[in-house]
């Protein structure tokens, strides 16, 4: 794929912003969240060293959206093209996961699709992973190989920009006056940076290495008491599922405005006590430990069975956000240890 050099990030984002609205990471405390980019410098062009705090799903599957209006139906086709800058490999993977769900067979979600088709994805390499980042445990990397339109890598004197799609290539061609050739020394520097960040991340996660495939460990731990034990720290704030870039459970609720009725899609959480409760009052997962288990099972087992890929991208957002300080990596290690001990005994 085509790779070019640009000395300033601002020039790149300004060029994108001439064509469409751009959302870019902006610093809030010690993390990043997205803001609408403005070329006047109010929202600066900054390359986030690590994934943002908020998940990319917000752009495709907003927290609250209209899913249907009747009797006069609305068309979901009015979305204008938009770009999101600063996505990481984990974010791109999360979008691929959501694509599986919302593009499924005969049940296409037109609202997700209308946004997805207008989204221009500009990813970037991670150069300073957080302690909670753990994509390397789940076959992830600190830089993306696919799934982006453009990918940006920071080097000493500027940035390398790689096109990953036809739209990305077209953008580079249209704006070729902005770019210079990428010298091989710059590419070598980029590769060294990537290797370094990858090693840094592997070191962070060395103590969470599992003896077997994560899906086997979780599935075989079906009857483990560990889920109930870790659930004692859970305060059911549901932040893990809200901030998770792949959690996509939602609630449909009906609303009315004058003579129009609407169905809203609102994020929901399987951690919530009444999530699965049926009208008669029966609740298949009334115990918190069962809901904790369900979340991990869905991430590592059920989704894999249904779609052939894991639902966890190892971004670590749930670890950052957990009010009960639960780190799912610790849970997996405990389950792993428990299985090893059982095997050792038998």
């Amino acid at each position: 794929m085509e790779t070019v050099f640009i000395s300033q990030l601002k020039a790149l984002l300004d060029a994108v912003a001439q064509q469409m609205v751009v959302f870019t990471p902006t610093e809030v405390g010690d993390s990043f969240t997205y803001a609408r980019y403005t070329h006047d410098g109010e929202v600066k062009a900054v390359l986030n060293p690590v994934r943002t705090c908020s998940p990319a799903k917000e752009f495709l599957f907003p927290m609250r959206e209209i899913a249907a209006v009747f009797p006069e139906a609305i068309s979901p086709e009015e979305v204008q093209p938009f770009a999101v800058f600063g996505l990481k490999d984990c974010d791109l993977k999360s979008i691929q996961i959501l694509d599986r769900v919302f593009y499924e067979e005969e049940f296409h979600d037109p609202f997700y699709i209308s946004r997805r088709e207008k989204m221009f994805l500009i990813s970037s390499d991670c150069y300073d992973p957080k302690d909670t980042c753990c994509c390397t445990l789940f076959e992830g990397r600190v830089f993306p190989l696919k799934g982006f339109d453009l990918n940006v890598s920071k080097i000493k004197d500027g940035y390398l920009v790689e096109a990953g799609s036809t739209e990305g290539k077209m953008f580079l061609h249209r704006n070729e006056r902005l770019f210079a050739d990428a010298p091989s020394a710059a590419r070598a520097e980029r590769d060294r940076n990537r290797q370094q960040a990858q090693q840094q991340l592997e070191q962070i996660n060395a103590r969470y290495k599992l003896d077997r495939k994560v899906e086997e460990i979780v599935l075989e731990s079906q009857d483990s008491p560990v889920f109930d034990q870790v659930a004692t720290g859970c305060v059911e704030c549901q932040s893990c599922t809200r901030i998770c870039p792949t959690c996509h459970c939602f609630y449909l609720f009906d609303t009315q405005r004058e003579n129009a009725f609407g169905k809203m899609k609102v994020w929901d959480s399987c951690v919530r006590q009444d999530f699965a409760r049926v009208a008669g009052g029966e609740n298949p997962r009334k115990i918190l430990g069962d809901r904790t288990k369900h979340r991990l099972m869905h991430k590592f087992v059920y989704f894999l069975e249904r779609y052939g890929i894991h639902m966890c991208v190892g971004c670590g957002r749930c670890v950052d956000s957990c009010a009960g300080e639960m780190d799912f990596r610790d849970v997996l290690v405990r389950l792993n240890r428990e299985l090893v001990n059982i095997k050792g005994r038998s």
Binding site: V101, F102, E104, F107, D109, H248, C249, F250, Y251, L252, D268, C270, F275, A276, R277, V278, A279, G280, E282, P284, H294, M297, H298, V301, Y302, E305, R306
Partner: peptide, 19 residues
Amino acid sequence: LERRMKCGVGKCGHCQMNN
């Protein structure tokens, strides 16, 4: 079986039992 089928199209997660 009775479950909380909310969206009906295999997305919202409410009726999920295991996989």
